[in-house]
Structure formats: structure tokens, C-alpha cells
Design a binder for these strands. Structure first.
Lengths: 349, 349
DNA sequence: CTGTTAGCGCCTTCAG
DNA sequence: CTGAAGGCGCTAACAG
């Protein structure tokens, strides 16, 4: 029923081995022979059997990209960049690789499941994006998995994720969340703010912790006591920002600025402030993080920290494909850039 | 080096076939035997070889999800919903399927490439999301590919995409873009608008065409002549909305409403209007399409048409997994819901 | 319920 | 540069 390599060989009057060689292009074949084979492939409408090929070669053309939330542009932008570097030629059969993104939904179990599935498929590479969960048991389970993947020849790259201490084989491009958070809060302090609310992300995430630490570093550097009432934990979504802001306002109506864990949360914060009859930035300044495309369209435009998601993703993709040297030591820190816009201003008197 | 099924069989003192059976759970095995096998699997840290398994079984656990732009939440939301229905148990080996999203970037070539790659992998199912490109040559190439996939046993589902006329095997859940566009414009006309600008998406896309047709249907129904100056084509992004709006304003400053191809474009339109010193909706009303999460946060909140992306995606996922009956005739139309919000109001006098 | 026996379709030495 | 041959690891009849 289905056309096999042998059929192509018969039609082209060569041996299966030869067909395999022209298809994989990893071995010298006479031009005339190649053309004959290619013609046969075309005439027969032959499609390589991936599993068979992967089985024999003990490696596949699959490249996995794990993201926490595919509906969040933060991950979408990185994934698109990674995939664009993977899609191109460079794979084994016919030169195409299959970059596939897997949505973990932020769940440690699903992350592990996907990793196993990818391991099962003998993936050529795996790129994990975004913050990690800080649960110890899970973290070491993931590290162990990554180590095994690496041992089996799968390249492992972390993008926008802190290095895995127990899996040194994994190359890491880490975002400087701490530094970014610090810059942002420094900016607000510089404007005169002294009472700043902070809406953090989920408690057990590295990204959450690092951004918050940066914020606190800035406060400490300026001798501002960090009132515990000023920090609220939530999720990385708009709703969470909305609710957390109301909560912050309830706890301390005298706040003059709200720093959000990311832009999406900041948008929710803006909505809550507006609904509370407060003007931005006249009454309360707001800041986000990431500089997603919509942030510039907020009214007023959002002050935030731009992360070079696309660039980092592209680099991660290239490293995963072995087309770029990994950074020295296997770890590189990617810095963010403070974007001062209309949502931040001096505090009300 | 790597542990194989035979090793597990030896350790558990059973035949390889038995091991396979407990792993796939598709055949009766004595509980005691199963436990012994599972223990051996665990002790040996065995991981099934996916390619070998797929080769022997002539099908894989891979399910492809094609999206036009992974960085766009429109697709992200659908993809997440589809993947959530796929991820669960139901696959062959160990009950897990690998839902993988592929980013075509809207390019017909990449779409075809991914389809081939998926075909090569003997994917269990493929879900194509979003509008199709209307180039005839490409459309029939895709249809041909889909037909071949279906013949090879791959389930094909279209989600938010019009039916493929030449590939009737493909189940289609189509969005009623035309009806939605019509409702939206009806709403604006009802408010009293008579001069409406329209920012369309890329010219050769089905989504673009259908939404525009709906708009024109509404105009025609009310005897409003559609001035050609009032339509501008662009891309589905913010920048395009910004530029198109300036262009519309230049062509006819007397427009009282701008209808955008989607919410993202509408956001750009709002920015352009604001930058031109026009108030929304006092001077000009704005409307979007899709009702993405950020639309409610625009200031003023965006009037738009809500598409049940998540629900449609979930349904598509279930159908792809054979867990839900396809709609009669293989085609279902999913309607949108008009969401009237602050960005639309009566025209200025 | 379990073991035996053939392949699945391709890649990759090894000769020529 | 090309052909022949063996096996990659697993599944699916078929017996028992």
C-alpha cells in the first residue's frame, strides 16, 4: 500500500542504500544517480517513514520546545523564535527538522511527562523556556531527566530559565530578572515613590522570586522598609493583577505605585485602579515586566522592562541545533532594558 | 547501553510480548505478571523506544497542531485547548500522546512542510487552525496532502478554518466570520454610523475575506454605499492597524467608525486615533474581532465579536482523538457573540 | 492469559 | 561511488 524506500530503489534502478544516501545527503552520490532517484521519489510520491528512519539511525528530527503557557505571548514569542531557527535545513532526512512546542501549563507533572515523551521519541534537542518550579523534589526529577536526555544524545537548552544545578549538560540562557526588577524599582524610587505595592507571580516560581528580590534589593538600597502588606502573590494573568491591586489598596490606600510581576498582571492592575477611581500615573504609578507588544498600547503606555525574547529564543534555537557555540561555562545572562513610559510618574503629594 | 524491552522481559521473567502488552495496556495481562513487569521497568529505568514502537505499530502517538502565529493569543488559546484534550490518556504506549504545535508563520510552504513532516512521523492526528490562504495552487496542494494523511490513517480536523472542498475527509469546525462581521457592523449602523472605515487582514486569507463580506453585507442591507476608500488591507498586527487607520483618516477624515479585522489591529487603530487627537468613541467608534483577553482592558474597552476559541479548540481536540462524534456532514459552524463595550457609541454630529 | 515468530522500513558497516 | 546484508526495538498475529 504505502510506498517504501525499496520501491523507489526499484524504480530508480539502484539499491535501497543509494536511495537512503541521496535522501540523507550525507554521503557522496553521483549527480546522475541522484537525479534519477529524486525523480523516482517524485513520481512515486514517496514519503520517508520517520519512525523507521529514527529507529535505524537511533535519533530523530524532533526538537521539543516546552512552554508554561502557550496562550501567553511571552512564551509564544520565544517559541516562534526558537522554532524559526529549528525549522530550517540541517536535519537528517531531507534536511528538515520538526520543531514542536509542548504546553506544560506550568504543571511539573506535565513537564516531566513531555520530557519523557520526548525522550521516548529520541528527540534531537529539547529547549525548556521560562521559569522553573522551585519544588525540590520536582526540580531534581527534572534535572535527572535532563541528564538522561543529554546522555542519550539529546541537546538540552534552557531559555529564560535558571541553570539546572544538577544537570550541568544543559546550556542555559538566563534572563536577569533580578537586575530588571531592581532597575524598575530604582526608577520608581528615583521619581520619589516611597510606598510601593508589589504584585508577585506564583510563589514557587524562580521568575517570581528573582523579580521580587530585585525589587527588594532596590528598596533596601534606598533604606526603604518593605512593609509586608505591600506584597501580594498571584498568578501571571490579568485577573490576578486586578484582584491583587484591590487587595493592596485595601491594605494600604496610601500606596503611590504598583509594580507588577509582568505586563499582563500590570494591565489588570491598571483596570483595578481605574475602577477604583484612581488616575495613572497621577494618583498611582504602574509598572510591568517583559514589554510584550500590547504594553505600548495600554493607556497610558506601560513602563516596563524589555526582555529580548525573540533574540534569546533565536539564540537558544541555534545552540540547540549546534549552529552556534554555547556560551562559555554553558551559562549566559540576558539582560533586560528599562522602558520608561507614561504609566509611571512622580507620586501624588 | 540503552535498556530495551527485552531486558525488561528478562528481568521480569516473561516474554517481550508480555511486556509490550502491559505497557500498551491493550490486552489482558494477569495482575501479578503486570506488577512484576512494572517493577522491572522501574528498576531498569526503562523508556520505551518511540520510533521502534511506531514502526512496528504503523502509527505514532504524535498529534500535530498547526497554527499561523504562535505568538498571537488567538492561536495560543486554541492550541492550549486542543493540546489539553490530547495530552490526556488514550494514546497507545502508556496512554500518553504528544500534542505538538507547529508554527507556520502563515506561510503556505511551511504549512506544507510541516504537514509532510507530520506525515513522515505517521502522526495519529493533525489539527489545522485559523484561516487558510486562498491561493488556488497552494490550496489544492494542502488538500491533496490532507487527503493522503487521511488515507494513511491520520485524523484530520480543521478548527476555525473553512472546510477543504477537495479533502472531504477533514472534519471542519468553522467560525462564522461572515456572520460575526455582519453583526458587528449592524451594531454600528444601528448606532447611527454611515461612514465606516474597514481595516482588513491580509488579502489572500479566508478569514479576511469572510469578515469583510459580513461587513459589506450589513452595509448593503442598509443601503449604505461602500466607498472603496473606506477599506484598507493590512496584516493581523497592531502596527498594521495603526498605519491603516492613519491612511483611512487621510482618505476620509469624516469617518465616524473604524472596524478592524481583529482585536490586535483594533488596538493599533485606537492608538492611531488617539495620536491624531481623536476621542474614542466620541469622535470615532472602534470595533475589533475575537475578543481576546486584553480587549476588555483597552481604554475604552473594545466592542468586538467573541469567538469561543477555547471551546472550539477543545472540541476539535476531542474529535481528533475520537472521543467525540464529528458533527453531521463533517462540518459545524461555530458562531461568535457580539460584545458591545465602550469603544462604540453614537457618531459625532 | 502467555510465549514464539516474523517482520515494520530504514541505515550502515563492509565489500566491491 | 554503489550494492549486499544485518539489525535497530517493538508489535501483532498465531499458537498454546
Amino acid at each position: 500500500m504505502t510506498v517504501t524506500l525499496a520501491d523507489v530503489a526499484a524504480r530508480a534502478q539502484v539499491s535501497p542504500a543509494t536511495v537512503s544516501r541521496v535522501l540523507n545527503g550525507n554521503y557522496p552520490v553521483a549527480t546522475s544517480t541522484r537525479e534519477r532517484v529524486l525523480r523516482a521519489v517524485d513520481e512515486l510520491d514517496y514519503v520517508l517513514n520517520g519512525p523507521a528512519s529514527s529507529l535505524a539511525a537511533a535519533t530523530s528530527d524532533l526538537v521539543g520546545i516546552l512552554v508554561n503557557d502557550i496562550a501567553d505571548p511571552f512564551f509564544g514569542i520565544m517559541a516562534a523564535a526558537i522554532q524559526s531557527e529549528i525549522g530550517g535545513p540541517g536535519g537528517r532526512a531531507g534536511g528538515e527538522r520538526l520543531g514542536v512546542v509542548c504546553n506544560t501549563g506550568g504543571s511539573p507533572e506535565r513537564e516531566l511527562t513531555y520530557l519523557t515523551l520526548l525522550q521516548r521519541q529520541r528527540a534531537a534537542a529539547v529547549v525548556l523556556t521560562g521559569g522553573a518550579v522551585e519544588d525540590t523534589a520536582h526540580a531534581s526529577a527534572v534535572s535527572a531527566k535532563l541528564r538522561k536526555l543529554a546522555e542519550a544524545g539529546t541537546k538540552v537548552v534552557l531559555c529564560g530559565r535558571p541553570p539546572a544545578p544538577e544537570a550541568a549538560e544543559a546550556i542555559a540562557l538566563t534572563f536577569d530578572n533580578r537586575g530588571g526588577g531592581q532597575q524598575l524599582t530604582e526608577h520608581l524610587i528615583g521619581l520619589g515613590h516611597r510606598r510601593l505595592g508589589y504584585i508577585a507571580g506564583p510563589q514557587e516560581r524562580t521568575t517570581t522570586r528573582h523579580r521580587l528580590e530585585g525589587h527588594r534589593d532596590a528598596l533596601a538600597a534606598h533604606g526603604i522598609e518593605d512593609d509586608p502588606r505591600w506584597t501580594v502573590y498571584g498568578r501571571y494573568d490579568r485577573r490576578s493583577g486586578y484582584e491583587a491591586t484591590l487587595e493592596l489598596l485595601r491594605r494600604d490606600p496610601s500606596l503611590t505605585a504598583v509594580v507588577a510581576a509582568n505586563d499582563t498582571v500590570a494591565l489588570g492592575a491598571c483596570a483595578a485602579l481605574r475602577d477604583s477611581g484612581l488616575r495613572i500615573p497621577d494618583d498611582v504609578s504602574v509598572a510591568g515586566f517583559d514589554d510584550l507588544p500590547f504594553s505600548i498600547d495600554a493607556v497610558p503606555a506601560l513602563t516596563t522592562v524589555r526582555l529580548p525574547l525573540s533574540e534569546a529564543g533565536a539564540r537558544a534555537g541555534r545552540i540547540a541545533m549546534g549552529r552556534e557555540e554555547p556560551p562559555p561555562g554553558g551559562i549566559a545572562t540576558v539582560r533586560g532594558e528599562l522602558m520608561v513610559r507614561g504609566s509611571s510618574g512622580g507620586p501624588r503629594l
